[in-house]
């Protein structure tokens, strides 16, 4: 039984293989490219999943002081937070590159040790900084060269309005300093420049299968640099500054 099934599989494979060879041998390359394009499903959306070492510039107002006297450095040692973000784009223009409106939602956190209020020594209690960046974005991807000449690199630029709810915990509760609760929302703008690499060239057949079965036209990996200024509105000296300049890395799916 097992032997006959194996032989049947081998025969089926050879038939399929022969069909494939005949197709590629009989048709010129441009016809195949044309057929591939015709087979491609329409693409209107782009989904990005990304991670970043994200260091908010909370110590920026205190740069004149020594590192050990800056609050973020004192509690968190100056290390970055881990930021995860999910972005969904809707492409409304697709002629010379594509233009999209997008929204994104992220979450970043960092934990350090609280300090004894008297001795200012670190104690066995954690204090956490939590940030939820929410962005409304306009995205331009220069994918014209990729579509026309199959160059797998797509540079892109984004502009974003950013809303950033944040909160600080001491132990398990929101920290209260005097009468002020350690929570709030900041607003600002961000600019992004990035470069994505289309992965379809690794296995074009698999990429086509991914499109025909799930509807994902192209898959990318990308790296992008972000500069966000969160202290533009109503700035105060020594204000809470969640601005940053950071890189993000991730996976993108165009569908």
């Amino acid at each position: 039984m097992k032997t006959s099934l194996t032989i049947a599989c081998a025969l089926f494979a050879s038939v399929a293989s022969a069909q494939g060879l005949e197709l590629s041998g009989a048709n010129p390359a441009f016809e195949i490219a044309g057929a591939k394009k015709a087979l491609e499903s329409p693409r209107t959306m782009f989904l990005e999943v990304k991670l970043s070492p994200f260091t908010p510039l909370l110590d920026r107002p205190f740069l004149s002081r020594e590192e050990a006297q800056r609050p973020y450095y004192t509690v968190y040692g100056g290390g970055p937070m881990l930021l995860g973000e999910l972005e969904v784009d809707y492409q409304f223009f697709q002629k010379f590159g594509s233009l999209a409106g997008a929204v994104s939602l992220g979450y970043a956190e960092k934990y350090g040790r609280s300090l004894d209020a008297v001795t200012m020594q670190r104690v066995e209690q954690s204090t956490g900084l939590h940030i939820v960046p929410i962005k409304a974005l306009l995205v331009y991807r220069f994918d014209w060269a990729k579509q026309k000449f199959h160059i797998p690199l797509v540079p892109y630029a984004k502009g974003a309005f950013v809303m950033m709810p944040w909160w600080v915990t001491n132990g398990s509760k929101i920290e209260i300093d005097g009468t002020e609760r350690g929570e709030g929302v900041k607003f600002g703008f961000a600019g992004v420049l990035g470069l994505s690499l289309e992965l379809d060239f690794i296995d074009q057949r698999l990429a086509r299968d991914f499109d025909s079965s799930v509807g994902v036209n192209h898959t990318y990996i990308f790296a992008e640099g972000t500069i966000q200024e969160m202290n533009l509105f109503d700035p105060v000296p020594f204000g809470w500054d969640l601005s940053s300049a950071h890189f993000m890395f991730g996976l993108g799916f165009e569908f």
């Binding site: 609050p71 209020a117 956490g128 001491n170 300093d177 609760r181």
Partner: peptide
């Protein structure tokens, strides 16, 4: 104890929260 928000306040930070 003081957490990060308290350390920020002690350093002279003027964030009002909210």
């Amino acid at each position: 104890t003081i957490g990060f928000f308290g350390v920020w306040g002690q350093a002279g930070g003027t964030e009002a929260g909210g």
